[in-house]
Write a protein that binds this DNA or RNA. Structure first.
Lengths: 148, 148
DNA sequence: CTTCATGCAAAACATTTGCAGCTGG
DNA sequence: CCAGCTGCAAATGTTTTGCATGAAG
């Protein structure tokens, strides 16, 4: 299992390899994203980063998160409510369990995709009221356009 | 298979049963939502509604869509990009296929959830770059709070 | 040094809300 | 009638952007 430190090293190395500058602000953001399992909002990242490095602006958090998203080191999760959540610990697609009351996002421990709602309800104590399976890709028309 | 007309009737009847008033604006919104398979944005609904009933404001579209969402006759889909998409034809959870280029949302024709990316790529011509399976529910802590 | 990142404030969006006036039942 | 809608405009909340200054490499 990858540790938070592994993730931080990977992300840092990736930034270096792509020749992005490593500033204290970026280090602080990477650290929060690599260590957090809470799928934080930008605001939550901001609060944590300020603890380490108070002279940081919200705009910088946004810019850094957007950059990391573009290079695939952070995954953005859009739930209802307007604010995006970010996962830097495991930026590859995987199931999420979202609480519609407290908006907590957790990673359920499951492998298969069938009859899962009941299984999840039993193993986590959640009352499951919905689920979501989406695929993201490039449609044939857009692939054609990109080719030309 | 349910037809768009069935859906419109069901939605209309549901509104009546819950004693919501049926205004021309609401009728126009229901019609667009019942007939559209394109998972339209609020703006797209607005444009179509204006064709039928020009004296309609965007705020009314929002209010109607929110109402329908609350009574479960429309499902909201949050993808990245800020604007929500709405499905009034099939408001129950089901897989979606989202194009990250043109933002088109379609309903893939699949039943099982395994090894689907390849199957989908083959059947639709999409280049699949991600997928999403989320569950929505109420966590144990919130269920406890709600109980008291 | 030179280029790129930061911080600030303003702008850009999507969505919600308050309220006076209109209208469906 | 009159409770509940509508439309307008203003407010809200999130994310983005322009630009002068500052720091990384």
């Amino acid at each position: 299992m990858e540790t938070p430190k592994d993730r931080l090293d990977i992300m840092t190395e990736r930034m270096r390899a792509l020749e992005y500058r490593m500033t204290p602000q970026r280090q602080a953001v990477l650290k929060v994203l690599a260590e957090s399992r809470e799928h934080p909002t930008v605001d939550q990242i901001y609060e944590q980063v300020k603890a380490d490095f108070p002279m940081t602006s919200l705009a910088t958090i946004y810019k850094t998160v957007t950059l990391l998203k573009e290079i695939g080191e952070v995954m953005e999760l859009n739930f209802s409510g307007g604010r995006s959540r970010y996962d830097g610990f495991n930026p590859s697609p995987h199931p999420h369990l979202y609480c519609i009351k407290c908006e907590q996002v957790t990673d359920p421990d499951i492998e298969t995709f069938e009859g899962l709602s009941e299984e999840l309800a039993a193993s986590t104590g959640y009352e499951i009221v919905g689920q979501r399976l989406d695929f993201f890709g490039v449609c044939p028309r857009c692939r054609e356009i990109a080719r030309s």
